[in-house]
Design a protein around this nucleic acid. Structure first.
Length: 944
RNA sequence: GCGAGAGUGGCGGAAUGGGCAGACGCGCUGGAUUUAGGAUCCAGUGGGGCAACCCGUGGGGGUUCGAGUCCCCCCUCUCGCACCA
C-alpha cells in the first residue's frame, strides 16, 4: 500500500503516541515553559462540531512547534460537563445525567484522539468528577470565607473583618449575621431572572433580550432568596488589570463595557417637611454627607452634576422603597396601578416598546442648588438595580429625559450651551426645543455660568460635598453574580442551614468542614423541575438532606452552582490533577502559571473570562495562586460558517421576487416588502446564478437579485459538517490542514468541501514527492537522493523554513501552509530531491499534519518520533540571490523590468533602466525631472 | 441608536514602517495520459482591446513620484451592547 492512505497511518500513529506517552508533560517544567490551553468543551450529545478543531488545531500546532524548539509544553484537555442539556435529556429519558454525560465525553474523547492532538491525556478531567468538584466546593468555601476590604482593596479572611462595637454588643448571633452580610458569597433576596421553561433562575449574562441564552425561553423577574457572589467588589481590579493581559482589544472593551464603570456624584434632594428644609441644610453643613441616605432625602446618582440647575423633575424606579411614602392620596390609585403594570411587564415587553411611561407621585423634592421644588415621578425607564434607583431628570441634556418630558409636558430648561457647531441646532437647544447631551459651557446656572462641563463638575462636587448634600461617586453596570440554580446537574453547595427544634431554619449558616468534602449529589428518582423555583435536590432522601452534626440538625443547601463554576479554575487543576491534599500544589502552580496562550470562541468574552478572572483574584488575595491574572494571552478563533449558499425568493404563484424587496418579520417569515405576501426561500445552484456588477442575479432572469451568503451551521438549516465524515473521507491531517488554510484564525469563514479536497491533494503530492507510490513496499521515491542540494534548492528550502517559522510563530497558519505548497510545487518538478532537504521539510510540516509527517520520517529512515527533533534553522546567507528583478516605473506606472545585481548602486540601477530598450523609447523626448530609486525594490522616473 | 471589526477575481484568501495588486488553494478553459475517473501531469485564467495600451482593491474626494495600505466624507455587512442616569 504505497499510496498515501490516512485511514491506515493515522490510527497507527495515534496508537504509537498513546502507548509511548509521547506528549506527557513533566510535573515541573524542565526548560522554558509554555502553558497552551484550549477552552474545554461542553460535551454535547451531538459530538464535535467542525468549529472545535479550529482552535484545537491552532494550539496543537503551537505546542508541537514549541516542543521542537526545546520548550517544556503543557497542553491538557478536559470537559465542562455540568449543564442544562444533559439534565434536559435526563428529564426526558429519566436516566441519570451522569450516564449521558459520560457517554458524550467518550464520544468527544474519541473524536479528539482521532484528530491527533498532542494533549497530555493523563491530565484529562471533567468538572463532574467527584474529585474535581470536591475542589470546586473547596474554592467556594474560600470565597465564602472571604470579605473584601475596601481600604486595602483586596479579599481577606472573614475572621479579620472588624466588628463594630455596636454589633459585638448584641451578641454572637449579631456578629455572625454581620459577617454573613460581608462575605463574598452571600444570600440575598434579589430580583432574579426566573425562566419557567428551564425551571431555574439565570444570571444577567445568561439573558439576552429578555430570553434565556440557551433555548430562547421567556424570562420573568421575581424576588427570590439566592446565593450571590460579590464580584462587584472586584470591579475596579477586573477593569484595571485588563491592562496587564495580551488580549484582543475588542474583548477587553467588551469586558470594560460590561463592568461599565462610571464616575459622577450622589446628590441628596430633600423630601421632608418644607418648613424644616433650612434646618436640614444647616445640620448637613455641620455633619456632612451621611453614608446611607435617611428618610428625609431622595438620593440620586448622576454623571452630570453640572446639569443640576436643569433638573425639572425627578424619577424613581417603580420598585423604589419610597414609592409608597411619596404617593399623595390623590395620586395613590394611579401609582399603584402603574407599579402593578410595570412589575408584570417582562423585560421582553420592555424591550419591544421603548415608549416612555410613568406616573406623577404628587410629591416634590427640593433641589439643593437652587432650593426649588421638583416634581417626583415614577417611571420604569429608571432601573432599581443601578445607582440609587432614582435620578434627577434633565430633559434638555439627556435624550431619555427629553422623550419623557415631551410626552408628559414637563418644562425643559437648557443649562449647557453647546456653542457654535455645524451638527447642533444651538438656538433650539437653548430654547428648550432640542436635546443636547454633549459637553459645553454652563448657562442658567447661577454663579457657575460660563464654566466648561468638566470644570463645573469638579467645582460642584466640591461645593456639594462642603455643604454635606453630595459627594463624588462611582457606579458600575456590573451586578453581583447570581450564583445559584434550581437544578440537579451542578455542584451542590457545601453549606448547611441550621434548624431549630421545630425543624425551622434559624438563619445560621454552617460551611461543610473541608475534610467532609466533596458533598456528592444524591440519588433522585426523577429529575423533573416542578415549575416552582424550588430545587430538585429538595426531593433528596432525608439522610442526605438532613445531616446531624454535633447533635444539631441541619438542612443542606439545595440549590446547585451554575455551569460556570467548574470552568472558573480548571486551568489550575490541569497542573496537578491527581493531588489529594490540595487543589494544586503551590510550587507546581508557580512554575506553570500563567497560561501563555488561551484559545477559544469569542462567545465567552464576558461570561467565562470575567468569572474565571474573579475567582482567580480571590484565590490570589487569599494566597493560593501566585499571579493576579490567569490568562496572559488570549486569541479568539473565528466562527466557521456553512458552505456559501445562493437563495432566491418565490411568491406563492411561483414568481421570483428580487432580494432587495424581501424582508424578514419578527417570527422569521420571509415577506415581500411591497405586497406583504409570504415568500418561500429557494436554494439555488451555482450554475443558476451569475454575477452582474455588485450582485448575483438569476441567470435566466437577470432582473432578479438573489442572496449569496454563508450561514451559521445549524441542524435546522442542514448545513452542519461532521468531523467524523471528513476524517473518513479525507483523513485527519487534511481536516487539520484545511481548517488552518481557510483563512486567518480570528476570521469568520465559510466551509468548503472543495477546499478540503484541495489540501488533501497537497498531502498526496507531499507523499509522492518522497515515496515511490508505484512500488509494492513503502520505499523512497527514486528522485530522493543522498546528495547535496544546489544553490537554488537551498534557497527554496531556507526561504520556506524562514516563512513557516515566522508565520507559525505569529499564528498565521494559512500563509505558512501556502509556503509549504510552494515548496512542494517546486520540488515535485526537481528530478533530484536531496534527502536532507526532504527531511527538513517533513519537520516543518509535522506540527500541521503530524501523522503523514511521522510516517514520512520513518520512511526517510528514522526510528524515533519526530516530535522532539530540533526545529530546522534557516540561514539568511542561503536565501540571498546574486541578481534581482526590479520593476521600472515611469510616472508610477510599470513599464519594464530589469535584472540587476542584488547589491547594485542607485547609479547602476538608473543606468540599467535607461539602457532598457522599452524604457529608452518611452523616455525619448521627455524631460526626466526626478528619479526615485528604492534599492533592491524599484526605480521610478518622473518626467515632464 | 452606541461601540468594535471588515469590504480585494466566480469563491476562500495573499500583499499594509506607501513601492510589481491578486501569493497559495478552489473553480473554470485547453491539452497530455488513461478502458474509465470526482485520479495524475502540463499550460492558461481580474476586466476591456488585434495591439501599443487602458481600467481595476465598496463609492466619492485628497496627500504623494507612487495609495488596497495614509487623511476626509459616504455606503454595505458582521459582531457586541442596548433606557446603566
Amino acid at each position: 500500500m504505497p499510496r498515501y492512505n490516512p485511514a491506515v497511518i493515522e490510527p497507527k500513529w495515534q496508537q504509537f503516541w498513546e502507548e509511548n506517552r509521547t506528549f506527557r508533560a513533566p510535573e515541573l517544567p524542565t526548560a522554558e515553559k509554555r502553558y497552551v490551553l484550549d477552552m474545554f468543551p461542553y460535551p454535547s450529545g451531538d459530538g464535535l462540531h467542525v468549529g472545535h478543531p479550529e482552535g484545537y488545531t491552532a494550539t496543537d500546532i503551537i505546542c508541537r512547534f514549541e516542543r521542537m524548539r526545546g520548550k517544556s509544553v503543557l497542553h491538557p484537555m478536559g470537559f465542562d460537563a455540568f449543564g442544562l442539556p444533559a439534565e434536559e435529556h435526563a428529564i426526558k429519558t429519566n436516566t441519570p445525567p451522569r450516564v449521558s454525560t459520560e457517554n458524550n465525553i467518550a464520544t468527544f474523547r474519541r473524536q479528539m484522539k482521532m484528530l491527533g492532538f498532542s494533549y497530555d491525556w493523563d491530565r484529562e478531567l471533567a468538572t463532574t468528577d467527584l474529585e474535581y468538584f470536591r475542589w470546586t466546593q473547596w474554592i467556594f468555601l474560600v470565597i465564602f470565607d472571604t470579605w473584601f476590604d475596601p481600604e486595602q482593596k483586596r479579599g481577606r479572611p472573614i475572621a479579620e473583618l472588624p466588628i463594630p462595637a455596636e454589633v459585638a454588643s448584641r451578641g454572637a448571633r449579631a456578629v455572625q449575621r454581620y459577617r454573613d452580610a460581608h462575605r463574598l458569597a452571600y444570600q440575598a433576596d434579589a430580583l432574579v431572572n426566573w425562566c419557567p421553561a428551564l425551571g431555574t433562575v439565570l444570571a444577567n449574562e445568561e439573558v439576552q433580550d429578555g430570553r434565556s441564552e440557551r433555548g430562547g425561553h421567556p424570562v420573568e423577574r421575581i424576588a427570590l432568596r439566592q446565593w450571590m457572589l460579590r464580584i462587584t467588589a472586584y470591579a475596579d481590579r477586573l477593569e484595571q488589570d485588563l491592562e496587564q493581559v495580551e488580549w484582543p482589544d475588542g474583548i477587553k472593551n467588551m469586558q470594560r463595557e460590561w463592568i461599565g464603570r462610571s464616575t459622577g456624584a450622589e446628590v441628596d434632594f430633600y423630601i421632608g417637611p418644607p418648613e424644616d428644609y433650612d434646618a436640614w441644610r444647616v445640620r448637613r453643613g455641620d455633619e456632612g454627607f451621611p453614608g446611607s441616605a435617611g428618610e428625609e432625602v431622595l438620593r440620586i446618582y448622576t454623571t452630570r452634576a453640572d446639569t443640576l440647575f436643569g433638573a425639572t423633575y425627578m424619577v424613581i424606579a417603580p420598585e423604589h422603597p419610597f414609592v409608597d411614602r411619596l404617593s399623595t392620596p390623590e395620586q395613590r390609585g394611579a401609582v399603584e396601578s402603574y407599579c402593578r403594570r410595570a412589575a408584570a411587564r417582562s423585560d421582553r415587553e420592555r424591550q419591544e416598546s421603548r415608549e416612555k411611561t410613568g406616573v406623577f407621585t404628587g410629591s416634590f423634592a427640593i433641589n439643593p442648588v437652587n432650593h426649588q421644588g421638583v416634581p417626583i415621578w415614577i417611571a420604569d425607564y429608571v432601573l432599581i438595580s443601578y445607582g440609587t434607583g432614582a435620578i434627577m431628570a434633565v430633559p434638555a441634556h439627556d435624550t431619555r429625559d427629553y422623550e419623557f418630558a415631551e410626552k408628559f409636558d414637563i418644562p425643559i430648561r437648557a443649562v449647557v450651551d453647546p456653542g457654535p457647531s455645524a451638527d447642533v441646532d444651538r438656538e433650539a437647544v437653548l430654547a428648550g426645543q432640542a436635546c443636547f447631551p454633549g459637553e459645553g459651557r454652563a448657562v442658567n446656572s447661577a454663579d457657575y455660568d460660563g464654566l466648561p462641563t468638566g470644570e463645573f463638575q469638579q467645582r460642584i462636587a466640591r461645593d456639594l460635598s462642603a455643604q454635606g448634600v453630595g459627594r463624588a461617586a462611582v457606579n458600575y453596570k456590573l451586578r453581583d453574580w447570581l450564583f445559584s440554580r434550581q437544578r440537579f446537574w451542578g455542584e451542590p453547595f457545601p453549606i448547611l442551614h441550621e434548624l431549630d427544634d421545630q425543624g425551622q431554619p434559624t438563619g445560621v449558616l454552617r460551611a461543610v468542614d473541608p475534610e467532609d468534602l466533596p458533598v456528592d449529589l444524591p440519588h433522585l428518582d426523577d429529575y423533573r423541575p416542578h415549575g416552582k423555583p424550588e430545587p430538585p435536590l429538595a426531593k433528596a432522601p432525608d439522610d442526605w438532606l438532613y445531616p446531624l452534626i454535633e447533635g444539631r440538625r441541619y438542612r443542606r443547601e439545595t440549590n446547585t452552582m451554575p455551569q460556570w463554576a467548574g470552568s472558573c479554575w480548571y486551568y489550575l487543576r490541569f497542573l496537578d490533577p491527581q493531588n489529594q491534599q490540595n487543589f494544586v500544589d503551590p510550587e507546581i502552580e508557580k512554575a506553570w502559571m500563567p497560561v501563555d496562550l488561551y484559545v477559544g470562541g469569542a462567545e465567552h468574552a464576558v461570561l467565562h473570562l470575567l468569572y474565571a478572572r474573579f475567582w482567580h483574584k480571590v484565590l490570589y488575595d487569599r494566597g493560593h495562586v501566585s499571579h493576579s491574572e490567569p490568562f496572559r494571552r488570549l486569541v479568539n478563533q473565528g466562527m466557521i460558517l456553512g458552505e456559501l449558499e445562493y437563495t432566491g425568493y418565490r411568491r406563492p404563484d411561483g414568481a421570483w421576487v428580487t432580494a432587495p424587496h424581501v424582508r424578514r418579520d419578527a417570527d422569521g417569515q420571509w415577506l415581500d416588502s411591497t405586497s406583504n405576501e409570504t415568500l418561500e426561500p429557494v436554494a439555488l445552484k451555482a450554475e443558476d446564478v451569475e454575477k452582474t456588477g455588485e450582485h448575483f442575479v438569476l441567470r435566466d432572469e437577470p432582473a432578479i437579485r438573489v442572496d449569496s451568503r454563508a450561514h451559521k451551521m445549524s441542524k435546522s438549516r442542514g448545513n452542519v459538517v461532521n468531523p467524523d465524515q471528513i476524517v473518513q473521507d479525507y483523513g485527519a491531517d487534511s481536516l487539520r490542514l484545511y481548517e488552518m488554510f481557510m483563512g486567518p484564525l480570528e476570521a469568520t469563514k465559510p466551509w468548503s468541501m472543495a477546499g478540503v479536497n484541495g489540501v488533501r491533494s497537497f498531502l498526496d503530492r507531499v507523499w509522492r514527492m518522497i515515496v515511490d507510490e508505484r512500488a509494492e513496499a513503502c520505499q523512497l521515491n527514486d528522485h530522493v537522493r543522498d546528495q547535496e542540494p544546489d544553490a537554488d534548492q537551498l534557497r527554496m528550502l531556507h526561504r520556506t523554513i524562514q516563512a513557516v517559522t515566522e508565520d507559525t510563530d505569529r499564528l498565521q497558519f494559512n500563509t505558512a501552509i501556502a509556503r509549504m505548497m510552494e515548496f512542494v510545487n517546486y520540488f515535485n518538478k526537481q528530478t533530484v530531491r536531496p534527502r536532507p532537504v526532504m527531511e527538513s521539510f517533513v519537520l516543518l510540516l509535522s506540527p500541521y499534519a503530524p501523522h503523514i509527517a511521522e510516517e514520512l520520517w520513518r520512511i526517510l529512515g528514522h526510528d524515533r518520533t519526530l516530535a522532539y527533533e530540533p526545529w530546522p534553522e534557516f540561514d539568511p546567507e542561503r536565501i540571498k540571490e546574486a541578481t534581482v528583478e526590479i520593476p521600472v516605473q515611469i510616472q508610477g506606472r510599470l513599464r519594464a523590468k530589469i535584472r540587476v545585481p542584488a547589491e547594485a548602486e542607485r547609479s547602476q540601477i538608473e543606468a540599467e533602466a535607461r539602457a532598457d530598450e522599452r524604457v529608452s523609447q518611452l523616455l525619448d523626448g521627455k524631460q526626466v525631472v526626478k528619479v526615485i530609486v528604492v534599492s533592491g525594490r524599484l526605480i521610478n522616473f518622473v518626467v515632464k
